[in-house]
Design a protein around this nucleic acid. Structure first.
Lengths: 144, 144
DNA sequence: TGCCGTTTTGACAATGGTTGTCACTCTTGA
DNA sequence: TCAAGAGTGACAACCATTGTCAAAACGGCA
Protein backbone atom coordinates (compact mmCIF):
# COMPACT_ATOMS: atom_id res chain seq x y z
CA UNK A 1 0.00 0.00 0.00
CA UNK A 2 1.05 3.55 -0.48
CA UNK A 3 -0.62 6.45 1.20
CA UNK A 4 0.70 9.77 0.22
CA UNK A 5 -1.15 12.98 0.55
CA UNK A 6 1.82 15.20 0.98
CA UNK A 7 0.37 18.02 -0.97
CA UNK A 8 -1.95 18.40 1.96
CA UNK A 9 0.64 20.24 3.97
CA UNK A 10 3.38 20.63 1.47
CA UNK A 11 4.82 24.06 1.46
CA UNK A 12 3.99 25.72 -1.83
CA UNK A 13 7.02 24.89 -3.94
CA UNK A 14 8.87 26.95 -6.56
CA UNK A 15 6.67 25.99 -9.52
CA UNK A 16 8.55 25.38 -12.70
CA UNK A 17 7.79 27.54 -15.71
CA UNK A 18 5.26 26.20 -18.16
CA UNK A 19 4.28 27.29 -21.60
CA UNK A 20 1.21 29.42 -22.05
CA UNK A 21 -1.27 27.61 -24.27
CA UNK A 22 -4.88 28.12 -25.22
CA UNK A 23 -5.83 24.96 -23.34
CA UNK A 24 -4.23 25.96 -20.08
CA UNK A 25 -5.75 29.39 -20.31
CA UNK A 26 -9.16 27.80 -20.81
CA UNK A 27 -8.76 25.54 -17.80
CA UNK A 28 -7.50 28.46 -15.75
CA UNK A 29 -10.47 30.53 -16.73
CA UNK A 30 -12.95 27.92 -15.63
CA UNK A 31 -11.13 27.49 -12.35
CA UNK A 32 -11.25 31.21 -11.81
CA UNK A 33 -14.96 31.32 -12.37
CA UNK A 34 -15.71 28.30 -10.27
CA UNK A 35 -15.92 28.70 -6.54
CA UNK A 36 -16.58 25.10 -5.74
CA UNK A 37 -14.66 21.92 -6.29
CA UNK A 38 -14.99 20.51 -9.75
CA UNK A 39 -13.93 17.17 -11.18
CA UNK A 40 -11.74 16.77 -14.23
CA UNK A 41 -14.66 15.22 -16.04
CA UNK A 42 -16.96 18.12 -15.21
CA UNK A 43 -14.35 20.63 -16.22
CA UNK A 44 -13.85 18.83 -19.50
CA UNK A 45 -17.59 18.77 -20.21
CA UNK A 46 -17.84 22.43 -19.34
CA UNK A 47 -15.06 23.39 -21.73
CA UNK A 48 -16.58 21.34 -24.48
CA UNK A 49 -19.97 22.94 -23.85
CA UNK A 50 -18.60 26.44 -24.19
CA UNK A 51 -16.89 25.59 -27.42
CA UNK A 52 -13.35 25.75 -26.10
CA UNK A 53 -12.83 22.05 -26.61
CA UNK A 54 -9.83 20.66 -24.76
CA UNK A 55 -8.86 17.01 -24.77
CA UNK A 56 -9.72 15.05 -21.69
CA UNK A 57 -6.16 13.86 -21.25
CA UNK A 58 -5.02 17.45 -21.42
CA UNK A 59 -7.47 18.49 -18.75
CA UNK A 60 -6.13 15.78 -16.50
CA UNK A 61 -2.54 16.70 -17.22
CA UNK A 62 -3.17 20.36 -16.67
CA UNK A 63 -4.90 19.82 -13.36
CA UNK A 64 -2.17 17.46 -12.32
CA UNK A 65 0.42 20.07 -13.08
CA UNK A 66 -1.46 22.80 -11.28
CA UNK A 67 -1.83 20.55 -8.27
CA UNK A 68 1.86 19.71 -8.30
CA UNK A 69 2.65 23.38 -8.35
CA UNK A 70 0.28 23.93 -5.45
CA UNK A 71 -1.94 26.19 -7.49
CA UNK A 72 -5.08 24.13 -6.97
CA UNK A 73 -6.39 22.06 -4.11
CA UNK A 74 -7.20 18.44 -4.67
CA UNK A 75 -9.73 16.48 -2.72
CA UNK A 76 -11.18 13.05 -3.22
CA UNK A 77 -14.91 12.70 -3.17
CA UNK A 78 -16.17 9.58 -1.51
CA UNK A 79 -16.70 8.10 -4.94
CA UNK A 80 -12.96 8.23 -5.30
CA UNK A 81 -13.16 10.92 -7.92
CA UNK A 82 -10.58 13.67 -7.65
CA UNK A 83 -12.01 17.17 -7.44
CA UNK A 84 -10.07 20.39 -7.96
CA UNK A 85 -10.38 23.98 -6.93
CA UNK A 86 -8.18 27.03 -7.28
CA UNK A 87 -6.86 27.70 -3.86
CA UNK A 88 -7.30 31.12 -2.42
CA UNK A 89 -4.90 30.98 0.45
CA UNK A 90 -1.29 30.32 -0.25
CA UNK A 91 -0.57 28.69 3.08
CA UNK A 92 -1.74 25.35 4.21
CA UNK A 93 -5.45 25.26 4.94
CA UNK A 94 -8.51 23.07 5.16
CA UNK A 95 -12.02 23.07 3.77
CA UNK A 96 -15.54 23.25 5.00
CA UNK A 97 -17.53 21.73 2.18
CA UNK A 98 -21.28 21.61 1.69
CA UNK A 99 -22.31 18.03 1.18
CA UNK A 100 -25.16 18.92 -1.07
CA UNK A 101 -24.04 21.84 -3.24
CA UNK A 102 -20.29 21.77 -2.83
CA UNK A 103 -20.01 25.36 -1.59
CA UNK A 104 -16.66 25.66 0.08
CA UNK A 105 -15.09 27.77 2.77
CA UNK A 106 -11.36 27.70 3.24
CA UNK A 107 -10.24 27.41 6.80
CA UNK A 108 -6.92 28.04 8.46
CA UNK A 109 -6.56 26.16 11.70
CA UNK A 110 -3.35 26.74 13.59
CA UNK A 111 -4.89 24.87 16.50
CA UNK A 112 -5.22 21.71 14.51
CA UNK A 113 -1.83 22.07 12.92
CA UNK A 114 -0.24 22.15 16.33
CA UNK A 115 -2.34 19.30 17.59
CA UNK A 116 -1.48 17.08 14.64
CA UNK A 117 2.17 17.84 15.05
CA UNK A 118 2.17 17.03 18.73
CA UNK A 119 0.26 13.80 18.30
CA UNK A 120 2.71 12.68 15.65
CA UNK A 121 5.69 13.63 17.79
CA UNK A 122 4.22 11.73 20.64
CA UNK A 123 4.30 8.55 18.58
CA UNK A 124 7.68 9.23 17.06
CA UNK A 125 6.34 9.91 13.60
CA UNK A 126 8.38 12.31 11.52
CA UNK A 127 7.94 14.16 8.26
CA UNK A 128 4.33 14.72 9.17
CA UNK A 129 1.49 15.96 7.01
CA UNK A 130 -2.26 15.68 7.31
CA UNK A 131 -5.60 15.97 5.59
CA UNK A 132 -8.62 17.45 7.22
CA UNK A 133 -11.90 18.25 5.59
CA UNK A 134 -15.14 19.19 7.24
CA UNK A 135 -18.41 18.29 5.58
CA UNK A 136 -21.81 19.65 6.39
CA UNK A 137 -24.90 21.29 4.99
CA UNK A 138 -24.52 24.96 4.18
CA UNK A 139 -27.12 27.49 5.37
CA UNK A 140 -28.52 27.91 1.89
CA UNK A 141 -29.09 24.19 1.35
CA UNK A 142 -30.41 23.76 4.85
CA UNK A 143 -33.00 26.45 4.16
CA UNK A 144 -34.10 24.86 0.90
CA UNK B 1 -20.67 16.64 -7.45
CA UNK B 2 -21.33 14.69 -4.33
CA UNK B 3 -19.01 14.58 -1.40
CA UNK B 4 -20.09 12.32 1.33
CA UNK B 5 -17.86 10.91 3.94
CA UNK B 6 -20.41 10.62 6.64
CA UNK B 7 -19.06 7.37 7.95
CA UNK B 8 -16.15 9.45 9.10
CA UNK B 9 -18.06 10.66 12.09
CA UNK B 10 -21.17 8.58 11.89
CA UNK B 11 -22.15 7.13 15.20
CA UNK B 12 -21.73 3.37 15.09
CA UNK B 13 -25.15 2.17 14.04
CA UNK B 14 -27.16 -0.90 15.08
CA UNK B 15 -25.65 -3.40 12.62
CA UNK B 16 -28.16 -5.72 11.07
CA UNK B 17 -27.75 -9.47 11.44
CA UNK B 18 -25.89 -11.26 8.69
CA UNK B 19 -25.42 -14.93 7.92
CA UNK B 20 -22.22 -16.57 9.00
CA UNK B 21 -20.40 -17.93 5.97
CA UNK B 22 -16.98 -19.36 5.29
CA UNK B 23 -16.14 -16.34 3.17
CA UNK B 24 -17.01 -13.77 5.78
CA UNK B 25 -15.12 -15.70 8.40
CA UNK B 26 -12.08 -15.76 6.13
CA UNK B 27 -12.22 -12.02 5.57
CA UNK B 28 -12.70 -11.44 9.28
CA UNK B 29 -9.70 -13.58 10.08
CA UNK B 30 -7.43 -11.65 7.78
CA UNK B 31 -8.65 -8.38 9.20
CA UNK B 32 -7.97 -9.65 12.69
CA UNK B 33 -4.43 -10.59 11.79
CA UNK B 34 -3.72 -7.41 9.92
CA UNK B 35 -2.78 -4.34 11.88
CA UNK B 36 -2.46 -2.02 8.95
CA UNK B 37 -4.83 -0.83 6.30
CA UNK B 38 -5.32 -3.26 3.46
CA UNK B 39 -7.04 -2.84 0.13
CA UNK B 40 -9.78 -5.12 -1.13
CA UNK B 41 -7.45 -6.31 -3.86
CA UNK B 42 -4.70 -7.15 -1.41
CA UNK B 43 -7.12 -8.91 0.86
CA UNK B 44 -8.43 -10.92 -2.06
CA UNK B 45 -4.93 -11.90 -3.17
CA UNK B 46 -4.04 -12.87 0.38
CA UNK B 47 -7.05 -15.12 0.71
CA UNK B 48 -6.33 -16.75 -2.59
CA UNK B 49 -2.72 -17.28 -1.60
CA UNK B 50 -3.65 -19.07 1.58
CA UNK B 51 -6.02 -21.35 -0.25
CA UNK B 52 -9.21 -19.89 1.17
CA UNK B 53 -10.29 -18.58 -2.19
CA UNK B 54 -13.05 -16.00 -1.99
CA UNK B 55 -14.47 -14.21 -5.00
CA UNK B 56 -13.33 -10.67 -5.53
CA UNK B 57 -16.86 -9.36 -5.68
CA UNK B 58 -17.54 -11.08 -2.40
CA UNK B 59 -14.55 -9.45 -0.78
CA UNK B 60 -15.79 -6.07 -1.90
CA UNK B 61 -19.31 -6.77 -0.71
CA UNK B 62 -18.12 -8.06 2.62
CA UNK B 63 -15.91 -5.07 3.28
CA UNK B 64 -18.69 -2.78 2.20
CA UNK B 65 -21.02 -4.41 4.67
CA UNK B 66 -18.50 -4.27 7.48
CA UNK B 67 -17.88 -0.62 6.77
CA UNK B 68 -21.60 0.12 6.75
CA UNK B 69 -21.90 -1.54 10.11
CA UNK B 70 -19.01 0.50 11.39
CA UNK B 71 -16.90 -2.57 12.01
CA UNK B 72 -14.02 -1.47 9.84
CA UNK B 73 -12.48 1.86 9.02
CA UNK B 74 -12.25 2.98 5.44
CA UNK B 75 -9.67 5.35 4.09
CA UNK B 76 -8.76 6.35 0.59
CA UNK B 77 -5.14 6.14 -0.40
CA UNK B 78 -3.97 8.90 -2.64
CA UNK B 79 -4.27 6.52 -5.56
CA UNK B 80 -7.97 6.58 -4.87
CA UNK B 81 -7.95 2.99 -3.73
CA UNK B 82 -10.08 2.23 -0.70
CA UNK B 83 -8.22 0.63 2.17
CA UNK B 84 -9.79 -1.11 5.14
CA UNK B 85 -8.86 -1.92 8.68
CA UNK B 86 -10.69 -3.40 11.63
CA UNK B 87 -11.29 -0.54 13.98
CA UNK B 88 -10.21 -0.87 17.52
CA UNK B 89 -12.07 1.99 19.08
CA UNK B 90 -15.80 2.06 18.88
CA UNK B 91 -16.11 5.82 19.03
CA UNK B 92 -15.16 8.27 16.38
CA UNK B 93 -11.43 8.55 15.90
CA UNK B 94 -8.66 9.43 13.50
CA UNK B 95 -5.48 7.82 12.23
CA UNK B 96 -1.80 8.42 12.27
CA UNK B 97 -0.56 6.43 9.31
CA UNK B 98 3.00 5.64 8.27
CA UNK B 99 3.47 6.74 4.73
CA UNK B 100 5.94 4.03 3.95
CA UNK B 101 4.80 0.88 5.78
CA UNK B 102 1.20 1.72 6.61
CA UNK B 103 1.60 1.16 10.36
CA UNK B 104 -1.33 2.86 12.01
CA UNK B 105 -2.10 4.42 15.35
CA UNK B 106 -5.68 5.27 16.20
CA UNK B 107 -6.14 8.68 17.71
CA UNK B 108 -9.00 10.21 19.64
CA UNK B 109 -8.97 13.97 19.44
CA UNK B 110 -11.69 15.73 21.39
CA UNK B 111 -9.85 18.98 20.72
CA UNK B 112 -10.26 18.63 17.02
CA UNK B 113 -13.84 17.49 17.26
CA UNK B 114 -14.73 20.63 19.14
CA UNK B 115 -12.77 22.81 16.80
CA UNK B 116 -14.42 21.36 13.71
CA UNK B 117 -17.82 21.79 15.25
CA UNK B 118 -17.22 25.40 16.15
CA UNK B 119 -15.79 26.29 12.76
CA UNK B 120 -18.83 24.79 11.08
CA UNK B 121 -21.20 26.58 13.42
CA UNK B 122 -19.45 29.79 12.73
CA UNK B 123 -20.27 29.47 9.04
CA UNK B 124 -23.78 28.22 9.59
CA UNK B 125 -23.06 24.71 8.42
CA UNK B 126 -25.17 22.01 10.00
CA UNK B 127 -25.17 18.23 10.11
CA UNK B 128 -21.42 18.33 10.33
CA UNK B 129 -18.91 15.52 9.94
CA UNK B 130 -15.24 15.48 9.12
CA UNK B 131 -12.28 13.45 8.00
CA UNK B 132 -8.85 13.84 9.44
CA UNK B 133 -5.85 11.67 8.82
CA UNK B 134 -2.27 12.32 9.75
CA UNK B 135 0.50 10.90 7.62
CA UNK B 136 4.14 10.60 8.52
CA UNK B 137 7.10 8.27 8.74
CA UNK B 138 7.00 5.90 11.69
CA UNK B 139 10.07 5.49 13.92
CA UNK B 140 10.83 2.07 12.48
CA UNK B 141 10.83 3.27 8.89
CA UNK B 142 12.74 6.40 9.80
CA UNK B 143 15.46 4.26 11.34
CA UNK B 144 15.73 2.03 8.29
C1' DT C 1 -33.06 -34.78 9.62
C1' DG C 2 -34.95 -33.04 5.35
C1' DC C 3 -37.13 -29.12 3.14
C1' DC C 4 -37.76 -24.39 1.70
C1' DG C 5 -37.46 -19.50 1.23
C1' DT C 6 -33.61 -16.26 1.43
C1' DT C 7 -29.28 -14.73 1.48
C1' DT C 8 -24.81 -15.13 -0.36
C1' DT C 9 -21.57 -16.37 -3.62
C1' DG C 10 -18.67 -16.30 -7.79
C1' DA C 11 -17.47 -15.92 -12.53
C1' DC C 12 -17.76 -12.57 -15.78
C1' DA C 13 -19.27 -8.49 -18.02
C1' DA C 14 -19.69 -3.73 -17.68
C1' DT C 15 -18.52 0.92 -15.77
C1' DG C 16 -15.98 4.81 -15.32
C1' DG C 17 -12.19 7.58 -13.81
C1' DT C 18 -7.49 8.06 -14.94
C1' DT C 19 -3.17 7.25 -17.35
C1' DG C 20 -0.21 5.79 -21.36
C1' DT C 21 0.89 6.29 -26.27
C1' DC C 22 2.50 8.60 -30.15
C1' DA C 23 2.24 11.34 -34.17
C1' DC C 24 1.22 16.04 -34.84
C1' DT C 25 1.10 21.07 -33.43
C1' DC C 26 2.33 25.13 -31.10
C1' DT C 27 5.39 28.04 -28.03
C1' DT C 28 9.64 29.86 -27.14
C1' DG C 29 14.28 31.32 -27.37
C1' DA C 30 17.94 32.17 -30.52
C1' DT D 1 12.26 32.94 -39.18
C1' DC D 2 13.60 28.41 -37.42
C1' DA D 3 14.60 24.44 -34.88
C1' DA D 4 14.00 22.01 -30.46
C1' DG D 5 11.19 20.37 -27.52
C1' DA D 6 7.00 21.07 -24.59
C1' DG D 7 2.19 20.37 -25.12
C1' DT D 8 -1.93 18.37 -27.34
C1' DG D 9 -5.59 15.06 -28.69
C1' DA D 10 -7.75 10.83 -30.11
C1' DC D 11 -7.83 6.50 -28.56
C1' DA D 12 -6.32 2.44 -26.33
C1' DA D 13 -5.13 0.50 -22.06
C1' DC D 14 -5.54 0.14 -16.97
C1' DC D 15 -7.62 -1.09 -13.02
C1' DA D 16 -10.54 -0.59 -9.01
C1' DT D 17 -15.16 -1.25 -8.28
C1' DT D 18 -19.97 -2.56 -9.24
C1' DG D 19 -23.81 -5.07 -11.63
C1' DT D 20 -25.74 -9.53 -13.07
C1' DC D 21 -27.73 -13.83 -12.42
C1' DA D 22 -27.76 -18.69 -11.91
C1' DA D 23 -26.01 -21.89 -8.55
C1' DA D 24 -24.79 -22.89 -3.72
C1' DA D 25 -25.07 -22.24 1.22
C1' DC D 26 -27.67 -20.92 5.54
C1' DG D 27 -31.06 -21.10 9.09
C1' DG D 28 -35.38 -21.91 10.72
C1' DC D 29 -39.02 -25.08 10.79
C1' DA D 30 -41.68 -29.27 10.49
Amino acid sequence: MRIDREQATQVTMPAKEHRRTRQRAAVDEVLDETDDFISAQELHALLRARGAGVGLATVYRTLQTLADDGRVDVLRSDAGEAVYRRCVREEHHHHLVCRSCGATVEIAGPTVERWAKSVADQHGYTDVSHTLEIFGTCPRCAAA
